[in-house]
């Protein structure tokens, strides 16, 4: 069972982000509960990835506030936010293509626990062990000496997920973790996401297009449309919300 103690680890308050004349996010407020799995859905172009990018500091926001563990982070840079323990994966999947899987893992150790000079340290045996253990966890152990770039797209997604776990974040934001993965692997991935949440205690915030996946996974779901927050609630409430159905069918 997930421990939901009502404490919000990410608090987004009235965030607006525009690109020229295009309003990508308008007055969005939402909360991610510590220890829970929170979902975010919405049609293409509804501003989900923009919101993710704003949270991790990829671009500055126009107005509003973003708090992580009670501290304002909307002015921090990407590395600083990652080093607080708030990590994201990418929709288009990003791994280090000319390094093998083990190397990809070894360089993903939690840098927030390291000082400036720790970069000159040798690779520790426990890091290697953890890397192999996590590669086994996502099912890539047999492929561990292959170059990241030689893996299939689905395997790269799994590698990216394993790298994120290696980093020991307190919150992991996943941008469409199942996109491009074949249907038989999807069930395994849902299972692993839940285990990452329960066994490693990582709070998850997931963007997902696959309704079956998100309804299965998340305890609380936000729905965006046209850059605005349209609805929120439990999977049951969201599924039966007429506004959400209209947004997806194009009535909006």
């Amino acid at each position: 069972m997930n421990v939901v103690n009502g404490h919000a680890v990410i608090e987004i308050d009235k965030v607006t982000k525009t690109f020229g004349g295009v309003v990508a996010n308008k007055d969005i407020s939402l909360k991610v509960q510590e220890g829970a799995i929170t979902g975010m859905i919405g049609p293409n172009g509804s501003g989900k990835t923009t919101l993710f990018n704003s949270i991790v500091g990829f671009h500055p926001i126009d107005t509003g506030s973003i708090k992580f563990e009670g501290n304002e982070i909307s002015k921090l840079r990407v590395q600083e936010i990652a080093r607080l323990g708030l990590l994201r994966t990418f929709q288009q999947t990003r791994i280090y293509g000319k390094m093998n899987c083990v190397q990809n893992m070894l360089i993903s150790i939690p840098h927030r626990k390291a000082g400036l000079l720790d970069i000159f340290a040798d690779h520790r045996a426990e890091d290697r062990e953890r890397a192999e253990h996590l590669l086994e966890f996502v099912g890539l152990y047999e492929k561990r000496w292959l170059m990241g770039g030689d893996l299939s797209f689905g395997q790269q997604k799994l590698l990216e997920f394993a790298m994120a776990l290696m980093n020991e974040p307190s919150v992991l934001m996943l941008d469409e973790p199942t996109a491009g993965i074949n249907p038989t692997l999807i069930n395994g991935l849902i299972d692993r996401l839940k285990r990452a949440n329960e066994e490693f205690g990582i709070t998850l915030f997931v963007i997902e297009h696959n309704m079956r996946v998100i309804m299965n996974l998340a305890e609380h779901i936000y729905c965006l449309a046209h850059g605005e927050l349209l609805a929120e609630g439990t999977p049951g409430q969201i599924q039966n919300d007429q506004r959400v159905i209209d947004a997806y069918l194009g009535a909006h």
Binding site: V78, Q79, A82, R83, R94, H111, I119, M163, N167
Partner: peptide
């Protein structure tokens, strides 16, 4: 291989 990813993973 991917500098933006490295930043996103917290590398300085």
């Amino acid at each position: 291989d991917d500098e933006q990813k490295a930043e996103g993973m917290g590398l300085q």
